[in-house]
């Protein structure tokens, strides 16, 4: 694992929240949990409850099962030499739970482990780029995770507009991002760029993510610090089984 420390570039991730659905048999053998290698993992076991049940009602019945599954995942990370905190919640609102955990532990990313997928190329990742996101952090994370290995990255942006100037600006941005990734040690042959003018951003992203081996993206609204796991993340997590790494903007020094 290489750890890049380029000037002005955020280093590798220190703390990552890994939400795990403990209502099912859990496996975290997705590609990302091995390559991201943060120094601390917050394993957030959750059991989604329907509105017809009280959280305690489900906990009464399945609390032990959930704890056992969470424990198994946590010890898996511990065996890999990572500091682990674990936490269990019965909740009707997974997104809110994840946001709260990220804020509470000051984590820099959320990693949804994803499920088993037969049809996707495990090595081909989709990187969703948003101009207003913290690109330093994104470059730093991608570099430390993928400089070694042979993962291919598709830098993808949806403008949702056919405006020529906007398209040029986007191409410029994607090209710049690619240059920085190459500079950080990722082979240019492993990087591709694509921009879409699809009107429905979310649909375009979901379509592109369908056969991706994993997805990397920034937090939903960098302007709202409390909100990390938003609609795009939620839909991706629900509708594709791809491992999903959401990178948060760097916290400004106070």
């Amino acid at each position: 694992m290489s750890r890049f420390d380029t000037d002005g570039m955020a280093g590798p991730l220190e703390s990552v929240v890994v939400p795990v659905d403990v209502s099912e048999q859990v496996s975290i053998e997705g590609v990302l949990s091995e390559v991201v290698s943060p120094s601390e993992v917050v394993v957030l076991g959750y059991w989604s409850i329907p509105e017809q049940a009280a959280p305690g009602q489900v906990r009464d019945r399945f609390g032990e099962t959930a704890s056992e599954r969470l424990e198994r995942v946590a010890s898996g990370f511990e065996a890999a030499g990572v500091d682990v905190r674990s936490r269990l919640a019965f909740t009707g609102d997974r997104e809110r739970l994840i946001d709260a955990a990220v804020n509470e532990y000051g984590s820099q990313a959320v990693l949804m482990p994803g499920g088993s997928r037969a049809d996707a190329a495990p090595n081909r990742g989709l990187v969703l780029v948003k101009p207003d996101a913290d690109l330093d952090r994104l470059v730093g994370t991608l570099a430390s995770a993928f400089a070694d290995g042979d993962a291919e990255l598709l830098l993808f942006h949806v403008t949702g507009d056919r405006d020529v100037h906007l398209r040029d600006a986007t191409r410029y941005m994607l090209r710049g991002l690619e240059a920085r990734l190459v500079e950080a040690g990722i082979d240019p042959g492993r990087i591709d760029r694509e921009q879409s003018t699809e009107r429905d951003r979310l649909e375009a992203i979901l379509a592109r993510a369908a056969d991706a081996g994993f997805v990397v993206l920034s937090e939903t609204e960098p302007s709202v610090r409390e909100r990390v796991f938003g609609t795009v993340q939620s839909r991706l997590a629900t509708e594709t089984d791809a491992p999903l790494l959401t990178v948060r903007s760097g916290v400004e020094e106070r």
Partner: peptide, 15 residues
């Protein structure tokens, strides 16, 4: 209705 956690760390209030 939602947000009860099993440990002491409660979630933020939202209503």
């Amino acid at each position: 209705m939602t947000g009860e956690t099993s440990d002491a760390g409660e979630l933020e209030r939202t209503v």
